[in-house]
Structure formats: structure tokens, C-alpha cells
Simulated assay, not measured.
Amino acid sequence: MSEHASQNAAHAQTPVRLDEVDRKILSLLQEDASLSLDQIADRVGASKTPVWNRIRKLREAGVIRRQVAILDPEALGLEACFFVLIRTSEHEKDWAARFLKALRERPEVIEAHRLAGDIDYILKVQVRNARAYDRFYQSLIAEVRIHNVTALLSMEEIKNSTALPIPEATL
């Protein structure tokens, strides 16, 4: 689970109003956050200082959480991606705290979501191979009681994007 999950709840407010320049800046940063301020300003047709001020305001408003490098899992030998569906019969605070701690301590878990419906949680787990997944699975169930686990191996990644769709301005 992301440490931003609780922050997101705090940011569950009225969406930030974005104009066309804000949307262009955000699109550019989502595509390549290593662009210089000069490059961004040139591409949006503005000068550096106003662009810098807009980026600063977008950070302060929580629109821009952070900037990261996106690594290629296969280049690192992490060729197996599993989606892990978890059902639990435990819903107490103590169990949830132990479960969340177990997930946060495992770097193989690159995404985790609590769901509505028949499945309680879904995890995205990136590992070298099936044997590595089994080690992950065995250590998780040794630490936290889980009612049912289904692991689905991704055979092919069709689309992977960190870019969010940026809503058009509404008047």
C-alpha cells in the first residue's frame, strides 16, 4: 500500500482547477519529469518564472506528489509479474495493521489496493520467476493469516502507464 493512501484521503477534496497551461505542464512532466524548466517553458509558450510558479503551486496543492525514475523490470531480471487476489475472513484493525506492515516491508509488492466486492485486496507483485513468487507467498502467509489467495501470472503486459488522464477545464 502506498504511504500516500492516507494522504489521498486527506486530499479528497474539490479537484484543483487547471487551465490549459497547467494541463500542458502536467502532461509534459508525466511524459518526462527530467525536462528542464527552460524546455517546459518553451513547449508551453511561457517564460520560466511563471512556469516555475505553476509547478510549485501544483506541488503545494498535492497535484504533483513526487518525481521518480521508472525502471525496466526485465532489465533488472524481474521477469514475472503476478496479480495476487486476496480474500480474508479477518477484518479487525490489528490484522489490517499487520497485513499492511507486511506489504510495506516487501519491495516485491509494487501496488496494493483494498477492493469492494468478493476480493478484499489485489497486489501487483514483481519477481524474478515463479520460485521467487512462491518464496514471497510463503513468507506472507507465515506472517499474516489469509483465507484465500489466487495468483495470476501476467503473460504479456499490454499497457503500462503512470500518466493520469488530465481532465479538461469545466466552467
Rank of each mutant, 00 (worst) to 15 (best):
E108H: 01
R98Y: 05
Q7Y: 10
I40N: 05
V44A: 03
V84D: 03
A10T: 11
V21Y: 00
A41H: 04
S47W: 11
A102W: 11
L103D: 07
T88K: 07
G62Y: 08
A75K: 13
E105R: 15
G77C: 03
A102F: 09
K101L: 14
I122C: 03
A46Q: 10
R23M: 08
Q126L: 13
D22G: 01
K24H: 08
S2A: 08
F83C: 02
V44Q: 03
S47Q: 15
I40Q: 07
A96L: 15
Q67S: 05
D120H: 06
E79I: 03
R56N: 10
A80L: 10
S47H: 05
K57Q: 15
A9P: 01
L78R: 13
D22Q: 07
D120A: 09
L78K: 09
R56Q: 13
H11S: 06
L115S: 01
Y121S: 04
V16C: 00
L115P: 00
Q67D: 02
W52E: 11
D38Y: 05
T14E: 13
G45V: 14
L35P: 02
S36A: 03
D22C: 08
R54C: 06
L100F: 08
I40P: 02
T88R: 11
D42W: 03
S2F: 10
D32I: 12
G45W: 11
A69S: 05
Y133K: 13
